[in-house]
Write a protein that binds this DNA or RNA. Sequence first.
DNA 1: ATATCCCAGCGT
DNA 2: CGCTGGGATATT
Length: 686
Amino acid sequence: MSGNPKNFIIDAIPLTRIPLSRQQYFSYEFERRLPAGTLVNISLFRRFLNGIVVNSRDDFHRLGNIKLKKIASIIEENFLTAEQLKLARFISDYYFCPLGVALKFFVPRRVKARTTPLTTYHLTQRKIKLTSEQQTAVNKITKNYLPRRLASLPASPGQGGQAGKPEARSYLLFGPASSGKTEVCVNAILKLKIQNSKFQFLILLPELTLIQQAIERYGARFAPEEVAVIHSKIPKGQLYAYWQKIKSGKVKIIIGTRMAVFAPFKNLKLIIIDEEQDASFKQWDMNPRYDARAAAEKLAEIHEAELVRGSAAPSIEAYYRSLRNEYKLIKLPKLRITNCELRKPQVEIVDIRKERWIKNYSPVSQKLRSEISRALEDKSRAFLLVNRRGMNTLTTCSSCGKVLRCGRCGRALIYDTSGYYRCLYCGKNPDLFLKCSHCKSTVFKNVGIGTQKIEKEMEKMFPGAKIKRVDADTIKNLKGLGKIYQDFSRKKIDIVIGGQTIAKFLPGARLAAAIDPDVLLIFPEYHSREKVFQQISALFSCVRKLGGENGKIIIQTSYPENAALRLAAKEDYENFYRLEINERQNLSYPPFAKFIKLIFRGKGAAEVEKTAQKVYNELLKAGGKNGRSKIFFPANLASPRLKGRLRKIIIIKLLDPRKNLPADIAEIIRRLDANWAIDIDPISMV
DNA sequence: ATATCCCAGCGT
DNA sequence: CGCTGGGATATT
């Protein structure tokens, strides 16, 4: 007989991967109850690891001879808050991630900080008088500051609203570049801070590059010890110190990237998601593949906090939801800056095809070239936006310029390393000897301009100019970033070449140009047009930062008639939205459908083929019944081989995104082993 | 993470 | 029949 009634059974989640098909907790013996959230050390199959207590119960006389191991040691009682446990559960359930893996992200490495953080702020506490529109926005955001129970939100993001109207506690703050969105947020925070000095505020940013200016704008209003900065480059010890100060309530404002949602907030009252449209909020490369925007929404629900999504070009999903009153839409008027009226930047769409007629084969048009040299003469600066996606080639017909497209699903065909043209979306491989569907030509051109190519071109064209290419390598450390910022401000750099985030990071440029938005425009993704719109909108914010100066924007393209480009050039978001939402509805894309991406990674081609086929058949059987979902045949990826393993992708499209995932499909996904990557609401489908 | 079990393939 | 290696499995 085992089991001692005087003891207690403690259920704990080991911080490791337990297959989703199994129970996520394991039971141990201990002489007293332990509060949920306690960090313990437990033995699990001949090794010791950390775990989180989720439940304690009385022991009982266990049948058979079931022996439980003892909790090895208690590291810290009440280590995780009840709110953190709730959020971890949500992430685990919604994103099909083992609970122990999700919890890992809530547990920082418990090490002493080597140095005390010494953050210096540019204390530019200039008092700016808000416009009446801005003041109204502040009032709207803060009017609900008293805790009020929220009619239960939909359990999962992107699932639309309830029949009954929920209290507006989520806002979409929509205003063009320099319309004062940050001022509104700062003032909302200050107002709430006066109401109750214990309130905590969270500012989420999509990328590291944007952290510093957020610290300057938000952090300056708080004492240095009330500010925490959370991102992956913060040293472990310092991160842990911040974690403790957030938990104790000492820290009042938390500025960070997506991982900041895991912090142990004590009295969270307002969450601001800046650059709401940015896809970097979604973690796509490892578990949990969560979207910080969805997590923040859950976090706001758990803490009964206000949530503000801010953007100059909101995501289609957010705007859609605001029109359905799931978010309250707050619009700031165009072209108004706090103290001076701005002239609209001159925007020019340059038809790059005409360059070929005048025998210019450079990726830089005559027009852009002359604008750059004019900028150099004026000693003003230029920013050239090059999509890093340029690595991916797409193919155009050399004689008519049409993009090669898949006959089955209409997406652009991509030249594969194996030497064939493929549709990476639906897996169809067209004929070996392709003909252009339009003009029957068999001569194609693989398109793709990278940052290096433009850098070389600039060196050739402007030998005296100071040129800086900013890409992933440069962003690796914060010091390098700071240097670029300073060099650019002090005019030590004339031309910067980089991606979209650099446009938002830079202190502004007189000339901003999109070198090749076409790559993005015809990229085989349902949201490619949305991305293009966002990129052009980033050029506007880059140029606007120079205050009253008259800026210039150049967009190079082979599709000057393209509606997304033309509306972006006019900053006409509403019409772009109308166009895009119709397309999404007609073709059943988000927010009218929901995608799930399953990727299998294996060694041998036969095994990969077989496994993918098997799961595909199971899914077909489960989902095919009611016509509510569509399962795409296992396809190859843009890079079929990765880290020596072959890969196959299965896309599930749920046609009724507001309904819960069908139970039989969920069950199949739960049974997939560790060789499968599960991505709910994926950003990319290739 | 890793001991253990199971099975295929091989040699005697 | 026994030995070996590889792969899947379970973990309180």
